[in-house]
Amino acid sequence: MTRTALLVLADGRFPAGGHAHSGGAEAAVKAGRITGAQSLEAFCRGRLHTAGLVAAALAAAAAGGVDPAGLDAAADARTPSPALRATARRLGRQLMRAARATWPSDELDAVARQFPKGAHQPVVLGLTARAAGLGPADAAYCAVYESVSGPATAVVRLLSLDPFEATAVLARLAPELDRVADRAVTSASAVPAEGLDVLPAASAPLLEIGAEVHAAWPVRLFAS
């Protein structure tokens, strides 16, 4: 593995569509649940331990060579909100495009053909890590980091929150990110022996409900 490849993939400027998504933060801001750095941190912590953990485990499993179609179905089952399923597929498709241009690979080409409208983003993230010569832990780290950096960046735009405060939130969460990435890798490594049910399925009711509410707004800044 090359450490630089991990930086390229984890870079917020990696052109895979993430900038247009708030990870549920826009709905939470509008509902008054995020009002500043402290509530942003609580939001990110909750997202990390639910959607972040699930995404990281899926990504780690895909990076470890588990069949992408099975993982994609497991992602569907763990994403009851149709708005979030659509978002995950859209982002998966966008990431697939960037990944194929960045790290050309037969495996990516095959999955792109299998899912012309996009596979779930964490699955594509794991395959991208694989194509970049990275491993399950790298993929899990990318996923957990994305699960909190997306909302933090969005809240800087939505609330004009001090960007230094938002970045400090991410730094404070770092030890928890490490633990969640670890847990994700452990579950993913058990998949070949125990099957997909061993993957975590942690859910956040307000993220699911908020995503449906957000999708119904006629006017919004972020796509999700």
Partner: peptide, 19 residues
């Protein structure tokens, strides 16, 4: 949809527009 950054969607990260 551009996430409050229309220039990003047409220049830095064109993936949604290409789709």
């Amino acid at each position: 949809e551009t996430g409050a950054c229309p220039h990003t969607a047409i220049r830095d990260d064109i993936s949604a527009n290409l789709e």
